[in-house]
């Protein structure tokens, strides 16, 4: 923290530049070779209105760029929601899927894959069931007639496990040659279906949620003091908590419905942020977004490069994130806890 105080601006700049630099580099990475000259040609074509090699154009504009944009949005959304939930529930082991969003969305996606032949139904189903899971959590919390954080957490555990059981049920019922693999792959997470249409529709809740959290981020510090103190500091605890949950849920559901369940980002990326810049949510929330975005772009690059068939992201995030997290733990000796 000491050295950070001295180089505060430098660190912010570095972290903010990270997703941009990685995103720009990622255009050149992949099985189809793209060189710097191609980008020049692309820019010239865009300026002059003249055509360029359609394959090149398509790879850059319709394959790589949407993936990079989607990766940044999904990674950022998951990371800010996770950071917000950790602050809200005053528990560092909480992730963006805390209130059952991921399991709900997974169930919705599996259901859509079984019920319909067309893939497009997966998005609304995943999104809708993700939201439904959170609403159910609230009702379970309501049963105890309190809005305490712990009943919500408990609700999240219950709803999460019910939806996990339902996912297993659907897997059991699914056609093993066609539907089952689709469900399994969806659950492991991927950005391979990135298209501008999806980015646009799923991007709205992701951006809305992330911006909402960005706006209210300082109040997470107040809520981290506990309900009594937050109240006596002048905060309407229930209203603020609901606002944060709605934002985090929108962001997470938007991310999960296009990319499937990508674990780890919503749990550990916020901690990487905490280790580098501390727990002040005013700084942490934007930093978590940038780091989440950078992390997922990087992981997606590796997933594309590592094998001819893309490795599911859920596997890679943990395999890569784990060792890096251990390194951070060693470097900082966990002093931010």
């Amino acid at each position: 923290m000491r050295s950070f105080q001295r180089h505060r601006i430098l660190w912010y700049g570095l972290i903010a530049a990270l997703p941009l630099v990685l995103g720009a580099c990622s255009v050149f990475l992949g099985r189809y070779p793209v060189s710097v000259r191609d980008i020049g040609a692309l820019a010239a074509a865009a300026l002059t209105g003249q055509g360029m090699d359609p394959v090149h154009f398509s790879v850059i504009v319709h394959v790589r760029m949407p993936r990079i944009i989607l990766g940044a949005l999904v990674g950022g959304s998951l990371a800010v929601s996770g950071a917000a939930f950790q602050g809200l529930f005053r528990n560092p082991l909480v992730s963006s899927g805390m209130l059952g969003v991921s399991s709900g969305a997974g169930f919705g996606a599996a259901l859509a894959l079984i019920l319909f032949d067309r893939y497009v139904y997966v998005y609304p189903f995943a999104f809708g069931f993700g939201l439904l899971a959170v609403v159910l959590c609230f009702f379970i919390g309501r049963l105890t007639a309190s809005t305490q954080a712990i009943t919500l957490v408990l609700g999240g555990v219950i709803v999460g496990s019910i939806f996990s059981a339902l996912i297993s049920l659907l897997k059991y019922l699914a056609d093993p040659y066609d539907e089952l693999p689709a469900i399994v792959f969806w659950l492991m997470g991927s950005l391979s279906r990135a298209e501008y249409d999806h980015i646009l529709t799923a991007g709205i809740p992701m951006i809305m949620g992330s911006v909402g959290l960005m706006i209210i981020r300082w109040r997470l510090n107040v809520l981290a003091m506990g309900d009594r103190e937050a109240h006596s500091l002048g905060l309407n605890v229930t209203a603020n908590r609901i606002f944060i949950i709605v934002c985090a849920t929108l962001a997470t559901a938007g991310a999960v419905c296009v990319s499937g369940v990508i674990g780890w980002v919503g749990l550990v990326v916020p901690h990487m942020g905490r280790m580098i810049i501390g727990n002040d949510n005013k700084a942490l929330i934007p930093v978590a977004f940038c780091m989440g975005a950078a992390f997922l772009i990087l992981v997606d690059d590796i997933s594309r490069l590592i094998s001819t068939s893309e490795m599911p992201l859920g596997i890679l995030t943990s395999l890569l994130g784990g060792p890096f997290f251990i390194y951070l733990l060693r470097r900082t000796r966990g002093r931010e806890w």
Binding site: N91, G234, G278, W337
Partner: peptide, 23 residues
């Protein structure tokens, strides 16, 4: 309202649970 109250009274808790290391 909490905001109204907080401009009249400030509260020093008996027991403060520390969850996150703020400066």
């Amino acid at each position: 309202s909490p905001g109204e109250t907080a401009r009249v009274m400030a509260y020093v808790p008996q027991k403060h649970d520390r969850h996150f290391s703020f400066s």
